[in-house]
Design a binder for these strands. Structure first.
Lengths: 156, 156
DNA sequence: TGCTAAATGCAAGTTAGTTGCAACAAGTAG
DNA sequence: CTACTTGTTGCAACTAACTTGCATTTAGCA
Protein backbone atom coordinates (compact mmCIF):
# COMPACT_ATOMS: atom_id res chain seq x y z
CA UNK A 1 0.00 0.00 0.00
CA UNK A 2 2.27 2.76 -1.13
CA UNK A 3 -0.35 5.36 -1.91
CA UNK A 4 -3.07 4.69 0.63
CA UNK A 5 -2.64 7.58 3.06
CA UNK A 6 0.60 9.29 2.10
CA UNK A 7 1.85 10.16 -1.36
CA UNK A 8 4.84 8.21 -2.50
CA UNK A 9 6.73 11.45 -3.10
CA UNK A 10 6.15 14.84 -1.53
CA UNK A 11 6.57 17.76 -3.88
CA UNK A 12 8.89 20.60 -2.80
CA UNK A 13 5.81 22.82 -2.61
CA UNK A 14 4.09 20.38 -0.24
CA UNK A 15 7.19 20.31 1.92
CA UNK A 16 7.34 24.08 2.09
CA UNK A 17 3.69 24.32 3.12
CA UNK A 18 4.21 21.61 5.71
CA UNK A 19 7.14 23.31 7.35
CA UNK A 20 5.35 26.66 7.26
CA UNK A 21 2.51 25.16 9.29
CA UNK A 22 4.86 23.35 11.64
CA UNK A 23 6.82 26.52 12.30
CA UNK A 24 3.61 28.15 13.45
CA UNK A 25 2.90 25.35 15.87
CA UNK A 26 -0.05 24.15 13.82
CA UNK A 27 -0.71 20.51 13.19
CA UNK A 28 -0.22 19.61 9.57
CA UNK A 29 -3.54 18.40 8.20
CA UNK A 30 -4.97 17.99 4.74
CA UNK A 31 -7.50 20.81 5.08
CA UNK A 32 -4.84 23.22 6.32
CA UNK A 33 -2.43 22.30 3.56
CA UNK A 34 -5.15 22.83 0.97
CA UNK A 35 -6.15 26.23 2.35
CA UNK A 36 -2.56 27.38 2.69
CA UNK A 37 -1.83 26.32 -0.87
CA UNK A 38 -4.77 28.35 -2.12
CA UNK A 39 -3.42 31.47 -0.41
CA UNK A 40 0.06 30.80 -1.79
CA UNK A 41 -1.32 30.69 -5.30
CA UNK A 42 -3.66 33.67 -4.97
CA UNK A 43 -2.77 37.13 -6.16
CA UNK A 44 -5.46 38.88 -4.14
CA UNK A 45 -7.16 38.67 -0.73
CA UNK A 46 -9.68 35.83 -0.41
CA UNK A 47 -12.94 35.46 1.49
CA UNK A 48 -13.94 32.29 3.31
CA UNK A 49 -16.35 31.53 0.47
CA UNK A 50 -13.66 32.00 -2.16
CA UNK A 51 -11.39 29.63 -0.27
CA UNK A 52 -14.23 27.10 -0.12
CA UNK A 53 -14.84 27.43 -3.84
CA UNK A 54 -11.15 27.04 -4.61
CA UNK A 55 -10.77 23.83 -2.62
CA UNK A 56 -9.98 20.91 -4.90
CA UNK A 57 -12.69 18.28 -4.98
CA UNK A 58 -10.87 14.99 -5.14
CA UNK A 59 -13.52 12.28 -5.58
CA UNK A 60 -11.64 9.87 -3.37
CA UNK A 61 -11.34 12.32 -0.45
CA UNK A 62 -14.16 13.76 1.66
CA UNK A 63 -14.99 17.41 1.03
CA UNK A 64 -13.81 19.98 3.55
CA UNK A 65 -16.53 21.42 5.70
CA UNK A 66 -17.36 25.14 5.63
CA UNK A 67 -16.98 25.45 9.38
CA UNK A 68 -13.50 24.03 9.11
CA UNK A 69 -12.54 26.81 6.75
CA UNK A 70 -13.57 29.45 9.25
CA UNK A 71 -11.61 27.66 11.95
CA UNK A 72 -8.56 27.33 9.75
CA UNK A 73 -8.71 31.01 8.86
CA UNK A 74 -8.94 31.74 12.56
CA UNK A 75 -5.95 29.59 13.45
CA UNK A 76 -3.91 31.03 10.58
CA UNK A 77 -4.77 34.52 11.75
CA UNK A 78 -3.90 33.79 15.37
CA UNK A 79 -0.56 32.33 14.40
CA UNK A 80 0.24 35.26 12.13
CA UNK A 81 0.15 33.43 8.80
CA UNK A 82 -2.63 35.56 7.34
CA UNK A 83 -4.24 38.90 8.05
CA UNK A 84 -7.79 40.18 7.73
CA UNK A 85 -8.53 42.92 5.25
CA UNK A 86 -11.70 44.86 4.84
CA UNK A 87 -12.46 45.75 1.26
CA UNK A 88 -16.10 46.73 1.82
CA UNK A 89 -17.39 43.62 0.15
CA UNK A 90 -19.73 42.77 3.02
CA UNK A 91 -17.45 40.05 4.32
CA UNK A 92 -13.90 39.66 5.50
CA UNK A 93 -11.02 38.87 3.20
CA UNK A 94 -7.73 37.31 4.14
CA UNK A 95 -4.24 37.41 2.69
CA UNK A 96 -0.90 35.86 3.51
CA UNK A 97 1.37 37.96 5.63
CA UNK A 98 4.63 38.25 3.80
CA UNK A 99 6.80 40.10 6.21
CA UNK A 100 8.98 41.56 3.50
CA UNK A 101 5.95 42.96 1.81
CA UNK A 102 3.95 45.61 3.64
CA UNK A 103 1.17 46.83 1.41
CA UNK A 104 -2.34 48.22 1.17
CA UNK A 105 -5.15 48.05 -1.38
CA UNK A 106 -6.96 49.96 -4.03
CA UNK A 107 -10.44 48.64 -4.84
CA UNK A 108 -12.81 49.38 -7.70
CA UNK A 109 -16.18 50.14 -6.11
CA UNK A 110 -18.00 48.89 -9.18
CA UNK A 111 -16.40 45.61 -10.17
CA UNK A 112 -14.35 44.82 -7.07
CA UNK A 113 -11.00 44.68 -8.85
CA UNK A 114 -8.24 44.87 -6.26
CA UNK A 115 -4.60 45.87 -6.56
CA UNK A 116 -1.83 46.11 -4.03
CA UNK A 117 -0.20 49.42 -3.16
CA UNK A 118 3.40 49.32 -2.11
CA UNK A 119 3.79 52.75 -0.66
CA UNK A 120 2.09 53.64 2.57
CA UNK A 121 2.96 56.94 4.23
CA UNK A 122 1.01 56.68 7.45
CA UNK A 123 3.95 56.37 9.82
CA UNK A 124 3.73 60.10 10.45
CA UNK A 125 0.04 59.79 11.17
CA UNK A 126 0.66 56.97 13.63
CA UNK A 127 3.29 58.94 15.51
CA UNK A 128 1.05 61.98 15.64
CA UNK A 129 -1.91 59.90 16.80
CA UNK A 130 -0.02 58.41 19.74
CA UNK A 131 1.41 61.77 20.63
CA UNK A 132 -1.87 63.65 20.48
CA UNK A 133 -4.25 61.12 21.98
CA UNK A 134 -4.82 61.07 25.68
CA UNK A 135 -6.44 57.65 25.44
CA UNK A 136 -4.31 55.55 23.14
CA UNK A 137 -1.07 53.84 24.02
CA UNK A 138 0.03 51.83 20.99
CA UNK A 139 -0.79 51.26 17.35
CA UNK A 140 -0.13 47.68 16.29
CA UNK A 141 -1.82 47.62 12.96
CA UNK A 142 -3.33 49.89 10.40
CA UNK A 143 -5.35 49.67 7.25
CA UNK A 144 -5.29 52.00 4.30
CA UNK A 145 -7.76 51.32 1.56
CA UNK A 146 -8.38 53.45 -1.51
CA UNK A 147 -11.73 53.19 -3.27
CA UNK A 148 -12.20 54.35 -6.82
CA UNK A 149 -12.99 53.22 -10.32
CA UNK A 150 -10.89 51.15 -12.66
CA UNK A 151 -10.40 52.18 -16.29
CA UNK A 152 -12.98 49.67 -17.47
CA UNK A 153 -15.73 50.74 -15.06
CA UNK A 154 -15.22 54.46 -15.49
CA UNK A 155 -16.22 54.05 -19.14
CA UNK A 156 -19.54 52.38 -18.34
CA UNK B 1 -56.49 68.93 18.24
CA UNK B 2 -53.34 70.94 18.61
CA UNK B 3 -50.94 68.13 19.51
CA UNK B 4 -52.27 65.19 17.58
CA UNK B 5 -49.76 64.88 14.77
CA UNK B 6 -47.60 67.99 14.91
CA UNK B 7 -46.06 69.66 17.92
CA UNK B 8 -47.44 73.10 18.76
CA UNK B 9 -43.94 74.57 18.55
CA UNK B 10 -40.96 73.29 16.60
CA UNK B 11 -37.61 73.63 18.34
CA UNK B 12 -34.73 75.27 16.45
CA UNK B 13 -32.99 71.88 16.50
CA UNK B 14 -36.02 70.22 14.91
CA UNK B 15 -36.08 72.91 12.24
CA UNK B 16 -32.42 72.39 11.47
CA UNK B 17 -32.88 68.63 11.11
CA UNK B 18 -35.92 69.18 8.92
CA UNK B 19 -34.15 71.47 6.52
CA UNK B 20 -31.12 69.18 6.43
CA UNK B 21 -33.34 66.34 5.22
CA UNK B 22 -35.20 68.56 2.78
CA UNK B 23 -31.93 69.82 1.27
CA UNK B 24 -31.00 66.23 0.52
CA UNK B 25 -34.28 65.64 -1.27
CA UNK B 26 -35.49 63.29 1.45
CA UNK B 27 -39.03 63.34 2.73
CA UNK B 28 -39.22 64.55 6.29
CA UNK B 29 -40.60 61.76 8.44
CA UNK B 30 -40.58 61.07 12.15
CA UNK B 31 -38.25 58.03 11.88
CA UNK B 32 -35.78 60.01 9.77
CA UNK B 33 -35.80 62.96 12.13
CA UNK B 34 -35.18 60.66 15.09
CA UNK B 35 -32.29 58.87 13.42
CA UNK B 36 -30.72 62.10 12.21
CA UNK B 37 -30.97 63.57 15.68
CA UNK B 38 -29.18 60.56 17.14
CA UNK B 39 -26.28 61.04 14.73
CA UNK B 40 -26.16 64.75 15.51
CA UNK B 41 -25.81 64.01 19.19
CA UNK B 42 -23.30 61.19 18.83
CA UNK B 43 -19.58 61.60 19.25
CA UNK B 44 -18.66 58.35 17.53
CA UNK B 45 -19.75 56.18 14.60
CA UNK B 46 -22.93 54.19 15.23
CA UNK B 47 -24.12 50.77 14.10
CA UNK B 48 -27.69 50.08 13.03
CA UNK B 49 -28.25 48.36 16.39
CA UNK B 50 -26.91 51.32 18.32
CA UNK B 51 -29.22 53.62 16.42
CA UNK B 52 -32.12 51.29 17.22
CA UNK B 53 -31.20 51.26 20.90
CA UNK B 54 -30.92 55.04 21.00
CA UNK B 55 -34.36 55.62 19.49
CA UNK B 56 -36.67 57.29 21.98
CA UNK B 57 -39.62 55.13 23.01
CA UNK B 58 -42.53 57.50 23.30
CA UNK B 59 -45.45 55.44 24.64
CA UNK B 60 -47.95 57.33 22.52
CA UNK B 61 -46.06 56.70 19.28
CA UNK B 62 -45.44 53.38 17.55
CA UNK B 63 -41.89 52.05 17.77
CA UNK B 64 -39.69 52.33 14.70
CA UNK B 65 -39.08 49.08 12.91
CA UNK B 66 -35.57 47.65 12.59
CA UNK B 67 -35.91 47.32 8.83
CA UNK B 68 -36.74 51.00 8.63
CA UNK B 69 -33.46 51.85 10.29
CA UNK B 70 -31.50 49.96 7.67
CA UNK B 71 -33.47 51.72 4.96
CA UNK B 72 -32.94 55.11 6.54
CA UNK B 73 -29.21 54.48 6.85
CA UNK B 74 -29.23 53.51 3.20
CA UNK B 75 -31.05 56.65 2.09
CA UNK B 76 -28.82 58.84 4.26
CA UNK B 77 -25.77 57.20 2.75
CA UNK B 78 -27.03 57.59 -0.81
CA UNK B 79 -27.80 61.25 -0.28
CA UNK B 80 -24.43 61.89 1.28
CA UNK B 81 -25.57 62.65 4.83
CA UNK B 82 -23.65 59.81 6.42
CA UNK B 83 -20.78 57.53 5.50
CA UNK B 84 -19.98 53.91 6.25
CA UNK B 85 -16.96 53.12 8.34
CA UNK B 86 -15.44 49.75 8.99
CA UNK B 87 -13.97 49.42 12.43
CA UNK B 88 -13.68 45.64 12.41
CA UNK B 89 -16.55 45.19 14.81
CA UNK B 90 -18.26 42.61 12.63
CA UNK B 91 -20.84 45.09 11.40
CA UNK B 92 -20.95 48.43 9.66
CA UNK B 93 -20.86 51.75 11.49
CA UNK B 94 -22.07 55.07 10.20
CA UNK B 95 -21.17 58.66 10.92
CA UNK B 96 -22.37 62.06 9.75
CA UNK B 97 -20.40 63.57 6.93
CA UNK B 98 -19.30 66.98 8.01
CA UNK B 99 -17.65 68.39 4.95
CA UNK B 100 -15.39 70.68 6.96
CA UNK B 101 -14.18 67.74 8.92
CA UNK B 102 -12.23 65.07 7.06
CA UNK B 103 -11.00 62.50 9.53
CA UNK B 104 -10.10 58.88 10.19
CA UNK B 105 -10.16 56.57 13.19
CA UNK B 106 -8.06 54.89 15.79
CA UNK B 107 -9.67 51.86 17.41
CA UNK B 108 -8.76 49.85 20.49
CA UNK B 109 -8.77 46.20 19.42
CA UNK B 110 -9.66 45.08 22.93
CA UNK B 111 -12.46 47.35 24.13
CA UNK B 112 -13.53 49.03 20.89
CA UNK B 113 -12.86 52.58 22.05
CA UNK B 114 -12.78 54.84 19.01
CA UNK B 115 -11.28 58.28 18.48
CA UNK B 116 -11.12 60.53 15.47
CA UNK B 117 -7.84 61.44 13.81
CA UNK B 118 -7.64 64.80 12.15
CA UNK B 119 -4.53 64.38 10.12
CA UNK B 120 -4.46 62.10 7.14
CA UNK B 121 -1.44 62.14 4.88
CA UNK B 122 -2.54 59.80 2.14
CA UNK B 123 -2.86 62.36 -0.66
CA UNK B 124 0.63 61.44 -1.80
CA UNK B 125 -0.29 57.77 -1.77
CA UNK B 126 -3.40 58.46 -3.84
CA UNK B 127 -1.45 60.40 -6.46
CA UNK B 128 1.19 57.70 -6.64
CA UNK B 129 -1.44 54.98 -6.91
CA UNK B 130 -3.17 56.60 -9.87
CA UNK B 131 0.13 57.29 -11.53
CA UNK B 132 1.56 53.80 -11.08
CA UNK B 133 -1.50 51.69 -11.68
CA UNK B 134 -2.27 50.55 -15.16
CA UNK B 135 -5.79 49.58 -14.12
CA UNK B 136 -7.14 52.35 -11.96
CA UNK B 137 -8.52 55.67 -13.15
CA UNK B 138 -9.78 57.55 -10.10
CA UNK B 139 -9.80 57.42 -6.33
CA UNK B 140 -13.00 58.81 -4.86
CA UNK B 141 -12.71 57.69 -1.29
CA UNK B 142 -10.25 56.23 1.11
CA UNK B 143 -10.17 54.79 4.59
CA UNK B 144 -7.37 54.91 7.08
CA UNK B 145 -7.87 53.04 10.31
CA UNK B 146 -5.32 52.54 13.05
CA UNK B 147 -5.71 49.61 15.41
CA UNK B 148 -3.99 49.47 18.75
CA UNK B 149 -4.56 49.44 22.47
CA UNK B 150 -5.86 52.18 24.69
CA UNK B 151 -4.14 53.04 27.94
CA UNK B 152 -6.70 51.11 29.96
CA UNK B 153 -6.47 47.89 27.93
CA UNK B 154 -2.70 47.84 27.68
CA UNK B 155 -2.55 47.49 31.46
CA UNK B 156 -4.77 44.40 31.54
C1' DT C 1 -58.65 68.22 -0.33
C1' DG C 2 -57.21 64.50 -2.85
C1' DC C 3 -53.51 62.16 -5.54
C1' DT C 4 -49.20 59.77 -6.09
C1' DA C 5 -44.82 58.35 -5.21
C1' DA C 6 -42.07 57.45 -1.48
C1' DA C 7 -41.59 55.62 3.16
C1' DT C 8 -42.83 52.36 6.68
C1' DG C 9 -44.15 47.96 9.07
C1' DC C 10 -44.44 43.17 9.18
C1' DA C 11 -43.06 38.55 8.08
C1' DA C 12 -40.08 35.75 5.96
C1' DG C 13 -35.65 34.87 3.87
C1' DT C 14 -30.55 35.14 3.12
C1' DT C 15 -25.66 35.35 4.19
C1' DA C 16 -21.71 35.19 7.06
C1' DG C 17 -20.09 33.44 10.80
C1' DT C 18 -20.42 30.75 15.56
C1' DT C 19 -21.13 26.98 19.00
C1' DG C 20 -21.58 22.34 21.06
C1' DC C 21 -20.51 17.90 20.71
C1' DA C 22 -19.03 13.54 18.95
C1' DA C 23 -15.64 11.31 15.91
C1' DC C 24 -11.09 11.37 14.21
C1' DA C 25 -6.16 11.82 13.40
C1' DA C 26 -1.40 14.27 14.12
C1' DG C 27 2.23 14.25 16.97
C1' DT C 28 4.50 12.01 20.71
C1' DA C 29 5.68 8.92 24.38
C1' DG C 30 6.43 4.31 25.48
C1' DC D 1 5.25 -0.05 15.84
C1' DT D 2 1.49 0.82 18.94
C1' DA D 3 -1.22 3.43 22.05
C1' DC D 4 -2.36 7.68 24.05
C1' DT D 5 -3.59 12.54 24.27
C1' DT D 6 -4.84 16.67 22.56
C1' DG D 7 -5.86 19.46 18.83
C1' DT D 8 -8.66 19.23 14.56
C1' DT D 9 -12.63 18.17 11.87
C1' DG D 10 -17.55 17.28 10.56
C1' DC D 11 -22.23 17.81 11.40
C1' DA D 12 -26.28 20.12 12.93
C1' DA D 13 -28.22 23.71 14.96
C1' DC D 14 -27.92 28.47 16.05
C1' DT D 15 -27.10 33.68 15.99
C1' DA D 16 -26.41 38.30 14.12
C1' DA D 17 -26.66 41.43 10.50
C1' DC D 18 -28.88 42.57 6.88
C1' DT D 19 -32.37 42.05 2.74
C1' DT D 20 -36.72 41.32 0.16
C1' DG D 21 -41.67 41.32 -1.00
C1' DC D 22 -45.82 43.11 -0.21
C1' DA D 23 -49.54 45.59 1.97
C1' DT D 24 -50.40 49.99 4.37
C1' DT D 25 -49.55 54.67 5.40
C1' DT D 26 -48.09 59.33 4.75
C1' DA D 27 -45.29 63.51 2.98
C1' DG D 28 -45.31 66.69 -0.46
C1' DC D 29 -47.67 68.81 -3.96
C1' DA D 30 -51.22 69.93 -7.60
Amino acid sequence: MSNSSKPATASPEQLELTSLLAECGLKVTRPRLSVLKIFKNSTHPLSAQEVAAALPTVPALPAINGVTIYRILDSFKTSGLIREVNLRHGHLDYELIDHADHHHHIVCTKCGLTEDLYSCGVSGLIKAAIKNSRNFATVNEHSVELFGLCRKCIKL
